[in-house]
Amino acid sequence: MIYTSESIQKAINSLSSLPTIGKKTAQRLVFFLLKQDKEYVSNFANSLVELKDKVNFCSKCFNFTEVDPCPICTSTKRDLSIICVVEEPNDVFAIEKTGDYRGLYHVLHGSINPLDGISAKDIKITELISRLTNIQEVILALNPSVEGEVTTQYLAKIIKPLSIKVTRIARGLPIGSNLEYVDEATISRAIDGRIEIL
């Protein structure tokens, strides 16, 4: 399709470069924006520019933050002896939403993935190790993919010799599911990850 305005074409190209947004959706969004008043559009554009200007990585946990160190790392209400290790900042949001976890985080920004040319030194592992003084437990909350598993084992191998407790999140049955209807691969993983009742 050829547009009568180069600006429209440019805006469509920008929007459709975003993940999950196709050309058709981008076109719809652009026509929506054209119908809004100028203030709406400037606020919208500024919020994007501010994002890049103000948001940075926390120098301790490598989560996104506007102040360094981030509010979680400096909070007085959190348990400073536990670190939960995740692959991406998204994962911090997911765990924070539960409101149950009160320790610290560490974002690796990826997992060990030779196919993508990512080795242990390319993710924030050294930075994690340097934070471990006074830490009593490291919880590994990586994805259940082969890459996440390799990274989990890797971290366990280097952290355990430091006499720090290393745990991983359980992969079990979905709550509310009836055992009879859960596929056997999930049940088998849940049995592998069984815990003793104390």
């Binding site: 196919l115 080795s119 084992q153 280097i158």
Partner: peptide, 27 residues
Amino acid sequence: ILKQRNELLSNSYDGYDETTLEILTDF
């Protein structure tokens, strides 16, 4: 696992991470 392990092995002349290879072999 094989894809990752073969990738690691095929670039091993450049140096490779022994721990990662051990873990992939174990898997």
